[in-house]
Nucleic acid binder design. Structure first.
Lengths: 331, 331
DNA sequence: CTGTTAGCGCATTCAT
DNA sequence: ATGAATGCGCTAACAG
């Protein structure tokens, strides 16, 4: 082991010298081995071993215009809805040699813009955003940057570039239709105060056909907020029969609070969530919900970016992944 | 708005020309405004606006040796234990102008090494790892890279560089002591199969003073696995009085399963978790657990890295954040 | 197959 | 307070 000092990491130059070849040959042996003789590759690889060389991807990216990084932007990592997406994104990108740079907007338009700017400054080969970018300025900037962009977890006719998601309005309508079919009259809503939850609520109310008592809770939602939300709703109308919740966390909280108050679920109070969180099938009662394939959103987004980077044309830049209702014990 | 073509993003060169100053003056006006006259700064900023200039951080980093990126490595994003850490890390780093690059090891030593290598290649100004790096090769490589490294969520006398965490062995002992104090005799363990959960189990068993029936579940743990684990444990010993779980998710599942089987919690079966997950205080019964300040781990790790980058000397590179037991209804 | 030349976009010397 | 030159580490283009 011909270790190099800790303060001067080996460069490709050192590798080339150790292998007795030119700089560019060493570069090719590592990055494009098809064009180099087997013997040379061996020598170079031995040199890499002995020098402990690790390629400087910053330098490579500067020249080649491929940084092998993809930016991922979420409101907050704790929004468990998005976790499977970020996880799948990271995994799928890693498989293609890309790495994810994370940005959090904290549901704040200003922060979103500043996050986007530093993102763009890192010359990522793609950007994946949970939700649609609202600010027109930011949309223009992204479009002009020429970086492939995938907006996710929503749908739009005119995305910045590409979009993978589903219609929140339709989700709301579908749940509304389900509630109508059950014949429930006294209906309440527990909803996060973010854009997408509000959209689902709109779709739900439109289908039900009237304004409904609503408890808004600050995003991200949680079991605790669900408990509080039910308290609020029952204060508005103690005889509610059914609650539509904007997440399974919220629904879980509503269930726990209902049981704690001696209500039977679903006989006295029916409860529906959203997101098909992993625990929902295993609570007692299990939680009826709307399934959305968050991991698939991440995988698809990754693939769109990678394909685009390979110069392929994207047949369909607007992907509707849909959703499906899952009926369990809570309704 | 003097927009530039989407295919040729403005460089600092363009800004300098538009402002009628030299390249370096423009550079200083943006990066080191104290040394430049107010009038020049204004001209440069106007030029930035009109050209839509966004600094290329790759190029800046290449020259300045400060990439303003920090690598973060987790087994999997879905391990909710680590979420507050990653979230706080991202937020705290962003405040100091750094961004996080995410790597997932999937609890796999080989993947860990390859993730570390590409990480190092990106010249991050620091690396934060959840857990201690096990492979000696990887430890050497990290140490030799000269990059500040913070290992977290564990403790060691000889970290690669710095470490912020707590002793899992002591956590196990503390919970064991608590169980002994309660006088429970027939005790079972539901544990994740990862390194740290096993350490806590070791500490627990040592304090209890004997081998205990254990149900191992694959990490990451979940409510579902908790239900299954209780089934397994009761099959081994139907008269168990108390269960020690390696996470609150697992504990929640054990509680749900116990209630579903008609057992009263804690009268028939006492249950203790670990991690103080957000829902644990609001379930019925609420979950006794061990609190660890995951967010603080992230904040501290960020600060250590940032301080080190500023050239400050770290007074104490080994930080024990400790833990505390929280007694709730489930015991 | 291999090597030479010329930058990528910026910040750190030095100079003025 | 400003500017000119130089090179960070690497790869794309062209040569041989």
């Amino acid at each position: 082991m011909n270790a190099v000092s800790p303060f001067k990491p080996a460069t490709l130059h050192d590798v080339a010298r150790a292998a007795g070849v030119s700089l560019i040959t060493a570069s090719r042996a590592l990055g494009n081995p098809g064009v180099v003789s087997a013997k040379t590759i061996e020598k170079v690889q031995a040199a890499v071993e002995s020098t402990g060389y690790i390629p400087n991807l910053l330098a490579g990216g500067l020249k080649s215009k491929r940084s092998l990084m993809v930016g991922g932007i979420v409101p907050a990592l704790s929004v468990s809805q998005f976790l499977p997406t970020v996880q799948a994104l990271t995994t799928e990108l890693a498989a293609a040699g890309y790495q994810l740079i994370l940005g959090q907007t904290a549901y704040d338009a200003e922060r979103e813009e500043s996050v986007l700017n530093t993102m763009i400054g890192r010359q990522p080969d793609g950007i994946v955003i949970t939700g649609l970018v609202q600010a027109q300025r930011a949309r223009d900037r992204l479009r002009r940057s020429g970086i492939p962009v995938v907006e996710t977890w929503d749908l739009s006719d005119r995305p910045i570039d590409m979009v993978v998601g589903f219609s929140h309005l339709k989700v709301g309508s579908a749940v509304g239709g389900y509630f109508l079919g059950k014949g429930w009259q006294r209906i309440g809503i527990a909803s996060g105060d973010d854009h997408r939850a509000r959209m689902r609520r709109d779709g739900f109310q439109t289908t039900i056909g009237r304004e409904l008592p609503t408890a808004f809770v600050p995003a991200p939602s949680s079991l605790e907020l669900g408990r509080r939300a039910l308290g609020e709703l029952l204060a508005k109308d103690p005889r509610l029969e059914a609650i539509c919740c904007s997440s399974d966390q919220l629904a879980h909280g509503v269930i726990v609070e209902a049981l704690a108050r001696g209500l039977r679920v679903p006989q006295d109070l029916a409860i529906c969530g959203f997101g098909n969180a992993d625990f929902g099938a295993y609570t007692v009662p299990s939680i009826s919900t709307v399934h959305v394939d968050g991991a698939e959103i991440g995988r698809l987004a990754a693939r769109l970016i990678v394909d685009r980077c390979r110069g392929e044309t994207i047949a369909n830049p607007i992907v509707d992944l849909g959703f499906r209702m899952i009926e369990r014990q809570s309704t």
